[in-house]
Design a protein around this nucleic acid. Sequence first.
DNA 1: GCAGTTGCCGAAAACGTTTTCGAGAACGTA
DNA 2: TACGTTCTCGAAAACGTTTTCGGCAACTGC
Lengths: 337, 337
Amino acid sequence: MAANRPVTLRDVARLAGVSVATASKALNGQPQVRAETRARVVLAAEQLAFSPNTFAQSLITQRSGTVGLLTSDLEGRFSIPILMGAEDAFGSGQTSVFLCDARGDTIREKHHLRALLTRRVDGLIVVGARPDTRASLGRDLPVPVVYAYAPSDDPADLSLVTDNVGGGRLAVDHLIRCGRRRIAHITGDPGYSAAQDRARGALDRLDSAGLELAGGEVWFGMWSEAWGRGATRMLLDRCPDVDAVFAGSDEIARGVLDVLHEERIAVPSRVAVIGFDNWNILAANARPPLTTVDLNLEQLGRTAAQRLSAAMDGHPASGTETLPVRLITRDSTAPLS
Amino acid sequence: MAANRPVTLRDVARLAGVSVATASKALNGQPQVRAETRARVVLAAEQLAFSPNTFAQSLITQRSGTVGLLTSDLEGRFSIPILMGAEDAFGSGQTSVFLCDARGDTIREKHHLRALLTRRVDGLIVVGARPDTRASLGRDLPVPVVYAYAPSDDPADLSLVTDNVGGGRLAVDHLIRCGRRRIAHITGDPGYSAAQDRARGALDRLDSAGLELAGGEVWFGMWSEAWGRGATRMLLDRCPDVDAVFAGSDEIARGVLDVLHEERIAVPSRVAVIGFDNWNILAANARPPLTTVDLNLEQLGRTAAQRLSAAMDGHPASGTETLPVRLITRDSTAPLS
DNA sequence: GCAGTTGCCGAAAACGTTTTCGAGAACGTA
DNA sequence: TACGTTCTCGAAAACGTTTTCGGCAACTGC
């Protein structure tokens, strides 16, 4: 809490024996200043531990060097990695990030949006908690916006989403390559596009292999371990010869594993299990450790930051960009021997 | 992306037919302006959707209206709720928060600190990933700092920590009130003060009840389900008449429950289990749902924000403040019948 | 009617930069 | 010598506010 007056460019200029104008130009790498004077100014700045007042800079340049991260939710596990990726991409450069949590409330979102615009952020990343489409913030914003995870309903906006369809395809593909033929799909709330898309991808891959879903249909339910357990019991009852389960989330997969374990059904030798999300605390600690699909969320955040930077530099984009997911192989799947 | 020139106070003043000086005073609630003129100015501001340029304001008032949230880690689960609490406390007011993630790297932390100071934040909250003491940022910072979760090693700083000793005491107290007498404690890495403190609290409460720890000593190990499972097997082997287990984390508790379930030992009727952390995904989905201790992290974040606000208003504090934890009763504990 | 007080308003300085533009010096060329 | 160029630098304007201070008019009390 030192209270000494902060050092300004004037002080630097005085110490270096030049005017503030040249001091400014020297520090900003403008060419019209002699090398020797520049060195003198830089030295003076270092001696005084000068750091330019960003308000004065922003005031004149009309750029704040900040972006806003507007998240609908910090509770869930999906927004955090995205924020991490975005923060990392910006924070290691010269831009600082404002964090705003709307807590699922539209009013609060509006409040934060207004606050961010008042602070003259140069850009905005809107990250959703669910991959379902969300309302656009509008077209008349003074700054570029990138929507991450939850796409905007306006195709003129730029949205970045994970490839849930591809993820479903990938999961089933892996099971088929493991020699499985009687594959069931237990997943969460059918009101989530995540559930629908993953199921669609799964069915698509099954179809192209000439296979049908074990159990006859997708088992929609809830995103919980309890549902995973309940559905698995029903599944074993109705379709005892199932040899693989694709769970729509790692939580559900934990429930599946739990019941299989209880029933003394060997995993993966008799039934293979694959999850979704790669939620480490659940997947890595499972018995056996869970093969699953990673959404590459941190990469999604990083890409969002790149797209936003591009837009801020005058290269806007629009439409929905789908980013790839990847398979994480652990011990709950293996080829049939 | 409308490109029309942003409206300034001059525009408002012109429309209202006053000078910028009175316009400023009118909008800022200064008394020396007639009610009728004030109304005219406010109306004009609304019509033009005026929002003051915060850079100009900050430049003159020497206050940015922003704070920095400097976290050592976003991976873990502990920093997030703290950030949420702090963001909520500030964000609903007029201050915006910068988010900086050091990713466990001192270099990066220094970089972020410099960036935040350059942005002239009015204050700083440093949140750690572990409750162990961390190095102070120093005494010569131009803004007040509050350390949350991980206390500073400098007693002149203000640190806010959770009451791990009290939590251990609380957990064992609950088990004793449930009529348990042969209580074991399985916990994580002894290198964590969290493990040591909780164990200390547990032993303290046992002592005051004249009890000894079942198994003879604290079972230190790792913060994982696997360790929970392994330790429980050893425990049952060495001490088959145990009637309660206090797990040092919910992860460990999950492992404990798993083995008890496997061994067909009824929970809570024969053995009661209590966890720590109230990590919802683990605790609520456990079989049976897990009684545990909640760290009140969001409240910790909120309190940190309050303390920081006080310090920014000229009421600094120092020392370490310990915040209470609370018991979450679910179904893994119950009175002996 | 007059001095003193109060209420309301505007001109101008200030905050700390960046940028434009003009001036002087040094240089080369004819 | 005269002239055009190229370097280097500084004075000053600008960014959009807040705040101080002085001025004017309308009151008050006598």
